[in-house]
Nucleic acid binder design. Structure first.
Lengths: 301, 301
DNA sequence: ACGGCCGTTGCGGAGGATGCAACGGCCTGC
DNA sequence: GCAGGCCGTTGCATCCTCCGCAACGGCCGT
């Protein structure tokens, strides 16, 4: 749209490959040296570009600072919430959002089931870390030594007969979770409650949060709940993409409906989950919904 | 220099503070809405800016990708070498550069002493990880669980009576090193050889390499060598700044000699060490050096 | 010492960016 | 339910600013 800016920005990926001289830049941009110089100067003034003593240019510190500041300013909850609400809207079940912090897993958001079922979770409170599906996902993404250290330092309360018994079992479970890219808890915390969870990956590809869908046996069987897995995974993927700041459609998005995304959106940068089939599935309550993905509607802000 | 680009780039730090609408951007840039729109569009096309469904703008994924690619393309050795050579030039002693990789610490550069002294190190070869000063620095920066895992998996050969005896002692030493921001090895590997080391921090603030100055007792005493610590720390800082792409002096740097750095270069971006005095110090062996207290300590990330 | 290379500067011209005004969708409030 | 306002978007004419050229100057290699 703007030629000058366009050229200037083209320089960045070029320099990301490695240091380059003025002339190299000018050549690859196909502009005059003086033009390239002016652009580089401007980038330099903004600290996006650094000049080595051999006069060649590299990307500058400001770029890192910006990237860092951007992730810190990321409001996971704010971005995720509409999607969580939509998922709750479609399925009717309880939706949780949790993050890992300092050895604990904490709920940071929750959309209550539309069924009259109490669940012992509260925003801001620690999760039953040894059994909760979200906890498994968050811990599974930690570097191996830390994962083991945490696993070994935990208590393993037997909430139910199906609770994780000890560190060894937990680590084995984490390995499987890491492998398959999702997690579940079938009556491990409260006898009659099951849940499926999916990871939210941030701009750096690491798991920065996890979300889950929970329901008691009396409403849906474990099998039925697990059938919703594709939906949960898909929602997590969409949120992750939005967190990273990736456009749903490269060209332009005339459609205001954001999550009604085009079927095959591979999420370029990150390692995407195996993208399982997503059959519409009747949905426990309401909305035979041919629309597989949760369509956000009620605008935010 | 270039008004258009200048305006466009001004948008980035603005958005780093948090999402902003078109009008907000236009207002803060003091330009017409349409102008801001064009700029944002261009940034958007390059992926530096992302558009949320509420139409507000955020920094985009491409920014992270660029930063990441840039650090991967970083040639630590190439950048550090001139500084290492300068340090060697000033002191006459052997200078080493090492990195941590996959449980090992490896030398990636070396500038030999101008004295006829052999040292059992070679570029590309693993370092005596339990005693070498550079190894201590590199391991000290690992996350706690990994640090412990590595420490416990090591052998602790008794090269000399002063070698680190076991994991417990090593971890204690690492904690101290982490705290003080530098490390030394006094005859822990070879009876008569001492060395002082300082960490090189990359754009992300983590220790990405470590450098050391080594000399045998026959040339300088341990005490004399330690007196050179400020110089080593300073050099490491300068290299770190250059790795991050920060300008030494905003105006311009007339001095070609890199390590003969300008006195007050605060190193804006990163948490800088308290900047100990650096008397030019005459030559290889010492300087009466009023060299005061244990200068550095904080230097936390 | 000289030639070539590369970054830098000043200048005129033209292409492109700017701001204006008008359109259109969306939400609010009456 | 309708009108009003808000905000993003578009087309266009004007003027600014960015572009390419050519010449300068420092540096290095021969």
């Amino acid at each position: 749209m703007s030629q000058t800016v366009d050229r200037a920005l083209t320089i960045l990926p070029l320099l990301a490959e490695g240091p380059a001289s003025l002339e190299q830049v000018a050549t690859r941009l196909d502009v005059h040296k003086s033009t390239a110089l002016r652009l580089l100067r401007t980038l330099h003034e903004h600290g996006l570009v650094y000049r080595q003593q051999d006069q060649r240019y590299r990307l500058g510190a400001r770029l890192f600072a910006l990237a860092q500041q951007a992730v810190e300013a990321l409001d996971i909850r704010g971005i995720a919430h509409p999607h969580l609400a939509a998922l709750n809207e479609h399925t009717g079940h309880t939706v949780h959002l949790a993050v890992y912090e300092q050895g604990e897993v904490v709920y940071i958001d929750k959309v209550d089931s539309r069924y009259p079922v109490r669940m012992y979770s509260r925003i801001g409170r620690p999760v039953a870390i040894t059994v909760a599906a979200v906890a498994k996902l968050l811990l599974a993404d930690l570097p191996e030594p830390e994962r083991r250290a945490v696993a070994e330092s935990l208590d393993y309360p037997r909430y139910t007969p199906r609770s994780t018994p000890d560190a060894a079992a937990f680590l084995a479970e984490l390995a499987r979770v890491r492998e398959q890219g999702w997690a579940c808890d079938l009556g491990g915390h409260e006898e009659s409650i099951n849940c499926v969870a999916a990871p939210l990956r941030g701009p750096d590809g690491r798991v920065c949060a996890a979300m889950s869908l929970s329901a008691p046996n009396v409403v849906v069987s474990a099998e039925e709940l697990l059938r919703l897995r594709p939906l949960v995974l898909r929602t997590a993927e969409v949120i992750g993409a939005e967190l990273s700041g990736v456009q749903p459609a490269p060209g332009l998005s005339p459609a205001p409906g954001p999550a009604a995304a085009p079927g095959p959106a591979p999420v370029p940068g990150l390692a995407a989950a195996p993208a399982p089939d997503l059959s519409p599935l009747p949905a426990p309550a309401s909305a035979p919904a041919p629309a597989p993905a949760p369509a956000t509607k009620g605008a935010t802000r």
